[in-house]
């Protein structure tokens, strides 16, 4: 069953179409990967789905309801949450204070589980600005997870992390998708993480859908190999 859907989604900046009539269906309960080369339109897609930008054309459906003109805040309360490509936290607040603040707003009653799931116990009393980058990334994801969102958009969660940290975070993503019963749309450049955790893959190229389907089938698709994967496949 589709929980999040884009139909004919187009985002144009002047004459440049960052997204060009994109159709995307995210099925409930899966980790859905969204990959493609730089400039493919992945981040624009995340912005349009989450409400950060209003598309020029097309619609966004959440549980079948048209949310294209709904605000970021409305979508968050409707169960659509996200993390950011560049870490987006509240640097001067402690980890505990910002999670507690956001948890109250989101109606989260099981903050301890999220803290444990993302291994944040050791930093709760630290200011977020003072903890390591990888830990800040996990705080970013924790903020997005509060309130049991039904759909979680993760925009390059492993950006800036080491190989080992990336794989650990990838496992965190897979675990939380299962434990919290949340559908994940994952934009990621780290293909080891993508093929490790994703149930289904969509490949974008120049703002358009290039391929979609089972990760193994997508990896073998000659168009994907030529446009993006190259020798990495």
């Amino acid at each position: 069953m589709a929980v999040l859907e884009a139909r004919g989604l187009t985002c144009a900046y002047g004459g440049v179409r960052a997204l060009d009539r994109l159709d995307l269906v995210v099925e409930a309960g899966l980790v859905h990967g969204l990959i493609g080369p730089n400039g493919a339109g992945k981040s624009t897609c995340m912005e349009a789905l989450s409400g950060g930008v209003r598309p020029s054309e097309g619609v966004v459906l959440l549980d079948g309801e048209d949310v294209t003109r709904r605000s970021v805040r409305w979508r968050r309360h409707a169960g659509l949450s996200r993390s950011f490509q560049r870490t987006s936290i509240f640097p001067a607040l402690t980890v505990h204070d910002q999670l507690d603040l956001a948890a109250r707003r989101a109606g989260e009653t099981d903050l301890d589980t999220i803290v444990a799931l993302l291994s944040l116990e050791a930093f709760l009393d630290e200011r977020c600005a003072d903890i390591a980058y990888g830990d800040q990334r996990r705080v970013d994801i924790a903020l997005a997870l509060l309130g049991r969102p039904r759909v979680l958009l993760l925009d390059e969660p492993t950006a800036g992390l080491s190989v080992e940290e990336s794989l650990v975070l990838g496992d965190h993503v897979a675990a939380l998708a299962k434990e919290r019963e949340v559908t994940v749309l994952l934009v990621e450049h780290d293909l080891d993480v993508v093929f490790r955790v994703c149930d289904v893959l969509t490949v974008l190229h120049l703002g358009r859908l290039l391929a979609h389907g089972d990760p193994l089938a997508v990896r073998a698709d000659p168009r994907v190999v030529e446009a993006y994967l190259g020798s990495a496949a």
């Binding site: 970021v72 805040r73 996200r82 987006s88 607040l93 204070d97 956001a102 989101a106």
Partner: peptide, 18 residues
């Protein structure tokens, strides 16, 4: 604390539902 959070990162505060 909400005011401080908005001061620190208003966009994130909106994405947290505030």
């Amino acid at each position: 604390r909400l005011l401080a959070a908005i001061r620190e990162n208003e966009v994130r505060a909106r994405y947290c539902g505030f």
